[in-house]
Simulated scan of single mutants.
Amino acid sequence: MMKQKFKKEEILQILSGIMVFISFFQAWIYDGGLNYYKGTELKTMLYDPPFLLNLIYLLLILGVANVYCGWNRKYNSALSSTTAIVVFFLLWSIVSFNSKSEDLVAANGFYMAAVGMITAVASILVARKERAKVGSETKGVNK
């Protein structure tokens, strides 16, 4: 039995998972000096960290889950949607507290998570397009 090729949405889901997972271990904020703060260190550097910063720990789970589903050719649009929403709120919370200080700059992890979010949204759009195409083909066959 030959394995089928990966569908576009599965490839995008795998890429999204990889980017989101790796972003957790990267620096998210650079303070202009020699300090880079990883996702886990963000709460310690802030006096009053936003509650949404706790979403950073979901990146590990969402990253692994996306890679797992994509690799096993079981595309999951709900998982991609959840990933996009969680990453959006996390990035939004970082931008909101980051705007209070002119010295802080976004770093690798922030951008990798953003790419993971964009890839998750792209996978949803590609899956919908494919579903619409399959739906129109079956309507043509049923006539």
Rank of each mutant, 00 (worst) to 15 (best):
residue 1 M to C: 01
residue 2 M to Y: 08
residue 6 F to P: 06
residue 9 E to T: 02
residue 10 E to L: 01
residue 11 I to L: 12
residue 11 I to V: 14
residue 13 Q to F: 08
residue 15 L to G: 14
residue 15 L to V: 11
residue 16 S to R: 07
residue 17 G to P: 10
residue 18 I to E: 10
residue 19 M to C: 14
residue 20 V to Y: 04
residue 22 I to P: 06
residue 23 S to I: 02
residue 23 S to N: 07
residue 24 F to A: 12
residue 25 F to C: 05
residue 27 A to D: 15
residue 28 W to A: 02
residue 30 Y to N: 15
residue 31 D to F: 06
residue 31 D to V: 02
residue 31 D to E: 13
residue 32 G to K: 07
residue 32 G to Y: 08
residue 33 G to R: 09
residue 35 N to T: 12
residue 36 Y to H: 09
residue 37 Y to P: 00
residue 37 Y to E: 04
residue 38 K to N: 13
residue 39 G to C: 02
residue 40 T to P: 00
residue 40 T to Q: 10
residue 41 E to D: 15
residue 43 K to C: 00
residue 45 M to W: 09
residue 45 M to E: 10
residue 47 Y to R: 06
residue 47 Y to H: 04
residue 49 P to H: 08
residue 49 P to R: 06
residue 50 P to A: 01
residue 50 P to V: 00
residue 51 F to H: 04
residue 51 F to Y: 09
residue 52 L to T: 10
residue 52 L to R: 09
residue 52 L to F: 12
residue 53 L to F: 13
residue 54 N to I: 01
residue 55 L to G: 09
residue 55 L to H: 08
residue 55 L to Q: 07
residue 57 Y to W: 15
residue 57 Y to H: 13
residue 57 Y to F: 14
residue 58 L to P: 05
residue 58 L to I: 05
residue 59 L to M: 13
residue 60 L to V: 09
residue 60 L to Y: 03
residue 61 I to V: 15
residue 61 I to R: 03
residue 63 G to V: 06
residue 64 V to Y: 07
residue 67 V to S: 03
residue 68 Y to Q: 08
residue 68 Y to A: 11
residue 69 C to M: 14
residue 70 G to A: 06
residue 70 G to M: 08
residue 71 W to F: 12
residue 72 N to I: 04
residue 74 K to L: 04
residue 75 Y to P: 08
residue 75 Y to I: 00
residue 76 N to G: 01
residue 76 N to D: 15
residue 77 S to Q: 14
residue 77 S to I: 05
residue 78 A to K: 12
residue 80 S to R: 02
residue 83 T to Q: 05
residue 83 T to V: 03
residue 86 V to L: 06
residue 89 F to Q: 05
residue 92 W to E: 13
residue 94 I to W: 09
residue 96 S to A: 09
residue 96 S to Y: 11
residue 97 F to N: 01
residue 97 F to T: 03
residue 98 N to L: 09
residue 99 S to D: 13
residue 100 K to F: 11
residue 101 S to T: 10
residue 103 D to T: 07
residue 103 D to H: 05
residue 104 L to H: 07
residue 106 A to I: 02
residue 106 A to T: 12
residue 107 A to L: 04
residue 107 A to V: 00
residue 112 M to R: 01
residue 112 M to S: 05
residue 114 A to V: 01
residue 117 M to W: 06
residue 118 I to T: 12
residue 120 A to S: 15
residue 120 A to R: 01
residue 121 V to P: 06
residue 126 V to N: 04
residue 126 V to K: 09
residue 126 V to L: 02
residue 127 A to T: 05
residue 127 A to C: 02
residue 128 R to Q: 14
residue 128 R to E: 14
residue 129 K to H: 12
residue 130 E to V: 07
residue 132 A to D: 15
residue 132 A to P: 04
residue 133 K to Y: 11
residue 135 G to I: 08
residue 137 E to C: 00
residue 138 T to R: 12
residue 138 T to N: 06
residue 140 G to A: 03
residue 141 V to C: 00
residue 141 V to S: 01
residue 142 N to D: 15
residue 143 K to W: 07
residue 143 K to I: 07
